[in-house]
Design a binder for these strands. Structure first.
Lengths: 238, 238
DNA sequence: CACTATATGTGTGTTAGCGCACCGACAACC
DNA sequence: GGTTGTCGGTGCGCTAACACACATATAGTG
């Protein structure tokens, strides 16, 4: 009898497109669940237990910088899966996944998905982790650029750059930073002026010097720490 | 003689962390290159020829909504690789990758990386493509939310939701949308009011109805089309 | 039916950042 | 040494969105 299947049809397209044999192998590992509106599937930082393949439900991926400052960075419907970090070899995500549209979904234990998509080779595994950190970076930057002040964002950006150049001095013009932060060049003049006034940096004609890193971290928003926290993991935990 | 190696040391940490045998296998496929400031490694939509593992160079990933409206959604230093889309099984990216800090990098032909990280199983391949589309979504939303007006963004959001619910009517409150778009609830009142005035949608107490999809697409910014274009690929091209 | 929580509409003052139009300073290059 | 291009600073009016404070309206519940 296929009654249960008729009652809860599998309409997730990601699953539907799989070759028959793979689809068959997955089915026993999938559990039909009803998702109710506003249900939280995973919290930022908490461990992800299941991945979800929506049928008619819709899931929002949110980046947040404060309790009341959230920003959607992704929508997941029947074309996708919530919990992609698990596939990328990471148990947690900085995003919150909440049910935006009630409906059904198929869920799978995180461990089962990891087993199914068993990674071959270190490079492969590593790039997965890295993809995850990039996604985190994009999400958090998105929220940061939406909510935070120019000078906080500039401080964050300088720190992220500082981490990568490995020197206290580097070349970068206001014009360039304005394109990075998505603000006017004059906006950077203002923000950089504040940082310079407070002896955190000094600069002249495209030459920036970090004078007080700790001070910069204090000015910068938490986004820096969040991104950094998620960014380095894959290079050590291997 | 290891002179050439001393001249151009491999300091990319992603490569450095690999087990010796894998590292050795990759080396012959890697080419030392000098990256100059402002060099463009790949343009939005164009095919990606190489991936880059920076040593002391730094690469910015930019999302753009217009010639002069760009936003950094990722930084790649010696901890990472530029061109992650290739790993995800996609030849192009909606982002522009430009050199933010001159220096050296190791580059690898896109085809070679694909071969090295040969994917096993359809699910695996599919999830890669999906990861890519999620990353695109996050990037483009980031830029959109930074630069575009609330009503344009609301139109985009409604279209994205409409695509997924598969019905012209669905439940969603202004409060909820305000959290998705990162604006105040009153801001949604205003934007939704415009859309309703123009007969594009109607709504009442959390019940939204799409009246004129084509009109909504006209109001919405290009971001919708861009995201949609990148989003559906993996479900058909398999 | 009254009560209450939820959902939406409106108004007022405030502000961060924008667009534009400059000006000055310095560097590099003939 | 003058010219030209890059880089940074400043002022001014403007506007989208904010914060806060209410006013309704409606659905659901006891």
């Amino acid at each position: 009898m296929l009654d249960t299947k008729r009652d809860m049809p599998v309409t997730n397209r990601l699953l539907a497109i799989l070759p028959k044999n793979e689809h068959q192998r997955l089915l026993p590992q999938l559990e039909h669940v009803a998702l109710t509106f506003a249900e939280v599937l995973h919290e930022p930082g908490a461990s992800i237990r299941h991945v979800y393949f929506p049928n008619d439900s819709i899931i929002s991926l949110l980046a947040e910088v404060a309790e009341s400052a959230t920003l959607e960075v992704g929508i997941v419907g029947n074309e996708g899966m919530a919990g992609i970090s698990v596939f990328m070899g990471v148990n947690t995500s900085r995003n919150r996944a909440i049910v935006q549209g009630a409906g059904t979904a198929l869920r799978m234990k995180a461990a089962a998905l990891r087993k199914e998509t068993n990674h071959v080779g270190s490079l492969h595994r590593l790039l997965h982790r890295y993809s995850h950190s990039l996604l985190t970076q994009a999400s958090q930057s998105a929220a940061c650029n939406r909510f935070h002040r120019v000078n906080e964002r500039l401080a964050r950006w300088l720190l992220m750059t500082h981490d990568r150049v490995g020197a206290d001095e580097f070349r970068v013009t206001q014009e360039f930073m304005s394109n990075m932060l998505g603000v006017r060049r004059e906006g950077v003049t203002g923000a950089a002026g504040i940082l310079q006034r407070d002896q955190l940096i000094s600069y002249s004609r495209g030459q920036v010097k970090i004078l007080n890193r700790v001070g910069l971290e204090a000015v910068s928003c938490d986004c820096y720490r969040i991104i950094k926290g998620e960014s380095d993991g894959y290079l050590t935990k291997n």
